[in-house]
């Protein structure tokens, strides 16, 4: 057996078969010290291979839900199962793309090495990346059209290129569940194209993708399920229902604006 000291203690290799990517029952999440729950009583099952959009105004609970699935926020009540096991059991199978601001982009590290950190959950303590790990990183860089920029310091990239680098890291991790927090926020058209294409690839490979997004034009084209969140609760489900709800909200705001 290969030497392995996984991060975060034990590590389960195989998820139970037939378990959905995500199963939430009455999930409530509260930020530490906050009185009000940021997400309340969520019931939701996402099958493996689904592409799900989380839609809603700022502060609706989209990021909160992603963080809870990633294990960054504790679940205060209810049960949240990832591939049939509690959060944290399959860390290497879950990739989380935070909003760009959560990284120190001035840190002296190359784009290639940033992407390589996606391999770390497979390595664990005391093991160095092997040639195969570097190759995975390069393949991911190539898929996101970043190979030319691989030796740049990460702060030298544009916003869209940084977003692509983070997605490349998730590909290098070979995660089965990808959590993306507004990946298309303020990025260039080229990045949008590449990211959409990669998301389609991922679905073809049977991976599950959950995306918090404000980009509503592509809802029908890019996703097969959607949740509309408001004040920590789901108010609409399904791509068409969410689309209608969005339309309704926009009209409502418009009317308010006209009235004012």
């Amino acid at each position: 057996m290969r030497f392995c000291l996984p991060y975060g203690g034990s590590r389960s290799e195989q998820p139970p078969t037939n378990a959905p990517a995500l199963a939430a029952h009455g999930v409530t999440v509260r930020y530490p010290g906050a009185a009000r729950a940021a997400l309340e009583g969520l019931d939701w099952v996402a099958p493996c291979g689904a592409r799900v959009a989380l839609v809603g105004p700022n502060g609706a609970g989209k990021s909160t839900l992603l963080k809870a699935i990633a294990g960054l926020l504790p679940v205060a009540a209810g049960s949240l199962l990832v591939f049939g096991a509690p959060v944290g059991a399959f860390r290497h199978r879950v990739a989380y793309l935070a909003q760009r601001g959560e990284l120190d982009w001035h840190f002296p590290i190359s784009v290639r090495r940033l992407v390589l950190t996606g391999r770390y959950p497979h390595l664990g303590w005391l093991r160095w990346p092997t040639r195969a790990d570097w190759r995975r990183a390069d393949e991911a860089l190539e898929r996101l059209q970043l190979l030319d920029l691989a030796e740049r310091q990460i702060g030298e990239l544009s916003g869209g290129q940084q977003q692509r680098a983070l997605l490349a890291r998730a590909l290098a991790q070979e995660a089965d569940l990808l959590l993306l927090d507004e990946p298309l926020n303020a990025v260039d058209a080229a990045t949008r194209e590449v990211v959409s294409a990669v998301l389609r690839d991922l679905q073809r490979q049977g991976r599950t993708v959950i995306v918090a997004t404000h980009d509503l034009d592509r809802l029908q084209a890019d996703f097969d399920d959607a949740l509309f969140l408001m004040d920590g609760r789901v108010v609409a489900r399904g791509v068409s229902a969410v689309g209608e709800r969005v339309h309704h909200e926009l009209l409502g705001n418009h009317r308010v604006a006209v009235a004012a």
């Binding site: 975060g8 294990g71 860390r91 989380y96 990284l103 590290i109």
Partner: peptide, 23 residues
């Protein structure tokens, strides 16, 4: 040397570190 990759990662991206189980 032994903790190089972990110290480096937690220095610039503590969020990813936490997601993959590093404290």
């Amino acid at each position: 040397i032994l903790l190089h990759k972990e110290l480096e990662l937690t220095s610039f991206d503590p969020t990813h570190a936490q997601v993959i189980g590093l404290r």
